[in-house]
């Protein structure tokens, strides 16, 4: 009955953009965390810095290919329209991507840097001038990058939330929901990478740091989703009808089952199960590898499903399909 103007590529784009934002945020935070002035989470920060730029770069590429006229994408950058979230977002995403790559560069070891530049033809003198050690800038880059990573996380929600024609999106909670989901996916992806890294196995305190971070983000996300549902029920008829898409309508199952239970509550339970004995009883943190992998995997799937549900259900919602479900 309704055709979708935005499809899976937009879902993937929103997910990957948020993922990068979350990875950068977690990496920067790990960069700042010190115990007795020692950077105990440096390996986490380095891993995060290595991963952060890629999802958003890939996502932006996909989005450009999804355009009706992909080669006209440069037009996004010869106009600036402050009323259009997509216009603001294009600039935000570009600046963030540059910062994320810069941050990656700052984390390269001298050897890695030499290897990288050995691939560049020797005659490209200008490029070789860039072969400088900027590792002392890490903290500063992370500091500048924080607001941009938050901005990207929020933007992925605002892109939908700012559309007044779609009552399912048009609440001021969607931006925060997407932000916390993005930060949580970032922490989870980092956990996944740390645990899967066979060469230098993750240490317990590193896993604990990421698990703690994820518990905080998932909890925040939950406490945005709850008000979203309650608020929607108490809102105008159009919003209430839009919400019925996930309260009895076609997106009910994927919202409550795969997303809310499997993608949020189960990983939260696993992570609390891991942390609680350590916090309340002073037991040692076990950091089970398999549990960490399961939780992280589920969080990532949940993050993807959240975008999926919102992009699709939102497009179905509108002001004029009053009897849409009966």
């Amino acid at each position: 009955m309704h055709e979708f103007n935005w499809g899976l590529l937009i879902v993937i784009y929103l997910f990957l953009g948020g993922l990068s934002a979350g990875l950068f945020f977690a990496a920067g935070l790990a960069d700042y965390m010190t115990v007795d002035d020692k950077p105990v989470y440096a390996r986490v920060a380095r891993m995060g810095a290595f991963l952060a730029p890629w999802p958003v770069a890939i996502g932006s590429g996909l989005l450009i290919l999804d355009l009706g006229n992909w080669y006209r994408f440069y037009k996004l950058f010869i106009h600036f329209r402050w009323e259009s979230p997509m216009s603001i977002g294009s600039y935000l995403l570009t600046i963030f991507t540059v910062i994320a790559f810069l941050y990656l560069f700052a984390w390269l070891t001298a050897d890695e840097r030499q290897w990288l530049f050995s691939k560049v033809p020797a005659t490209w003198k200008q490029v070789h001038r860039l072969n400088v050690d900027i590792s002392s800038w890490r903290g500063k880059i992370a500091m500048v990058g924080f607001p941009f990573s938050i901005g990207v996380g929020i933007y992925t929600g605002v892109l939908l939330g700012a559309v007044s024609a779609r009552p399912f999106w048009n609440t001021n909670l969607v931006a925060q929901m997407f932000l916390f989901s993005a930060l949580s996916s970032g922490a989870a992806a980092l956990m996944l990478a740390m645990v899967l890294n066979k060469k230098s196995p993750a240490e317990k305190h590193e896993i604990k740091f990421l698990v703690t971070l994820d518990v905080v983000f998932i909890s925040l996300e939950l406490f945005i989703i709850l008000p979203y549902l309650i608020h929607g029920q108490l809102s105008s008829l159009a919003v209430k009808q839009a919400l019925s898409l996930i309260l009895g309508g076609p997106y009910t199952f994927v919202f409550w089952g795969p997303f809310l239970v499997m993608g949020l509550l189960v990983p939260l339970a696993i992570e609390v199960y891991e942390l609680a004995p350590n916090i309340f009883k002073g037991h040692e943190f076990h950091g089970s590898r398999n549990l960490a992998l399961t939780a992280a995997g589920l969080v990532l799937i949940g993050g993807f499903l959240l975008r999926y549900i919102f992009v699709y259900a939102g497009q179905v919602s509108s002001f004029h399909q009053m009897g849409m479900l009966n």
Binding site: N5, L67, K75, S164, Q315
Partner: peptide, 11 residues
């Protein structure tokens, strides 16, 4: 550019 944002935004 064919981003279709306007289609989504038209009530």
């Amino acid at each position: 550019i064919g981003c279709r944002y306007c289609m989504v935004a038209c009530p």
